[in-house]
Design a protein around this nucleic acid. Sequence first.
RNA 1: UACCCGGUGGUGUAAUCGGCAACACAUCUGGUUUUGGUCCAGACAUUCGAGGUUCGAGUCCUCGCCGGGUAGCCA
Length: 569
Amino acid sequence: MTESDDTKPRRNFIQQAIDEDVAAGKYGGQVHMRFPPEPNGYPHIGHAKAICVNFGLAKEFGGACNLRFDDTNPVKEETEYVDAIRDDISWLGFEWHEEILYASDYFDQLYQFAVKLITDGNAYVCELSPEETREYRGTLTEPGRNGPYRDRPVEESLDLFARMKAGEFENGSKTVRAKIDMASPNLNMRDPVMYRVLNANHHRTGDAWCIYPMYDFAHGQSDSIEGITHSLCSLEFENHRPLYDWFCEKLEIHHPRQIEFARLNMTNTITSKRKLRELVESGRLSGWDDPRMPTLRGLRRRGYTPASIRSFCDTVGLAKYNSTVDITLLENAIRDDLNKTAPRYMAVLRPLKMVITNYPEDQVEMVSAVNNPEDPDAGRRDVPFTREVFIEQDDFREEAPRKFFRLTVGKEVRLRYAYYVTCTAVVKDDAGEITEVHCSYDPESRGGKTPDGRKVKGTIHWVSATESPRAEVRLYDRLFSTDNPESKPADAAEDWTLLENLNPDSLEVIEAPTEPALAQLPVGTQVQFERLGYFCVDPDSTPDRPVFNRTVTLRDSWARMEKQMAQKK
RNA sequence: UACCCGGUGGUGUAAUCGGCAACACAUCUGGUUUUGGUCCAGACAUUCGAGGUUCGAGUCCUCGCCGGGUAGCCA
């Protein structure tokens, strides 16, 4: 990486913090990160940011990044999610350090840590019920009170803890608690629970354990065991940092630095696992990989590239306050990527038949088209041209508005890579609907220019009416039509849910004629349909009927202009 | 009403420990163009408020105001 000298370094607050640690020789100048997902759901765009931050920073500082599953709550976690998370991280383009790790690998060590804390008088076995525990804890404004088991003898706690592990007690009957300060203004320090009795089958340890450590007593300790130097997490753990530090100090173990940053929020979508699950389970979306989902598998199926998501995560930056990123940033990232790489093709989404009256019947002529004007190496291809072609309904207007450069009776436009055509007549059915347009072409204009050098304002795409295979095209749009799907309108009914903010037009399925080259592309291939947008080949495709998903439309400044003119009226 | 964290354009982030508020997206103008795409050029903020320190404050201090987090045996 060489940066020009005049490029000012743009360091976010975490990079600066690590810079300082490295410069001070803390942790021997080493950097070792980790990404610690709980395997209880599919990763979404918000996780992508966390992944990019952790793996990206590790790489930047020449360190490694572990992938560790935070699997300390067996009732919520499943192997299915472990696999999904692993695959999505790989897909995004990151490599974790050596083997995949699990907090559950450390259950024995964690148990020993707890024994040490009890032995040192820093923890005890508590027999308060969950309700009593809450009562003793106090409230946000009132201090808690010491419980009756707080000062029991060390030996007694040790014995009880061993019996907890041996499975002698009911769920919820006993806990191990850190002995800190029931009057602390930080509720996390009011003797937090370290272990609970949970008779549940764990996805990896099976029935070996019936007590499981809580996040606060598993996460930091796992970081420590792995020699993590910088432990990044989201903002809501800021209040846990004193506890994170307390455990490391009392245990006298390697002490990583916890740094918090804001998780990603984006407009026009949601990132709540629970709500996404609702969308899937209600059948409104086809699954976790529905191309409208903000999940990584959804984005992947939609046509988003790993590079585009990484670039997006790069531009959203890092902060210590919650913000909401405009979804146009994501859309811009994929356009930017695909513009350089996606080969162009022609397809007509809303066909209108054009008859070129002075063109020979039954003639099929191949015209040569550029595959990608952004990439000289992409070459050219042939596209069949015939007397009857389809053009886009939008590209013809009987009464053309101001600045409409496209086709209207009496006007000449260019059929991209083919000929200039001039509209001579409109044909309508009994209902008055336009069924076809008639044109004459200029044989001299083959390839899209004329010897006399005359210019036409408009160039439109087309497809042969007789030589074009059909494809299924799924026109995807934003999942929610409002910036903030969670915001309830002032006049909303009592049973309002965010489902009412769903974009009713987030999917439209159509059949479209395409140029022949589009018929046999491998699943996942990303292309641009000229003047329309970027599309990719969906796994639902069959050999005789490809299915294309619209990833994102092209920018459409004409549509914008037209909308503006309509508003001015 | 306890404690913690935070407020920079329409949006998201910068500003090298006090020195001309920068970048991207969005929006608007114009130019190029065989995609109304891309590309190029230009426009768009006196940094939540009030004081204070200073030659000089987005940066430091004080007091307000506003927003977020925290009372799981979830993570």
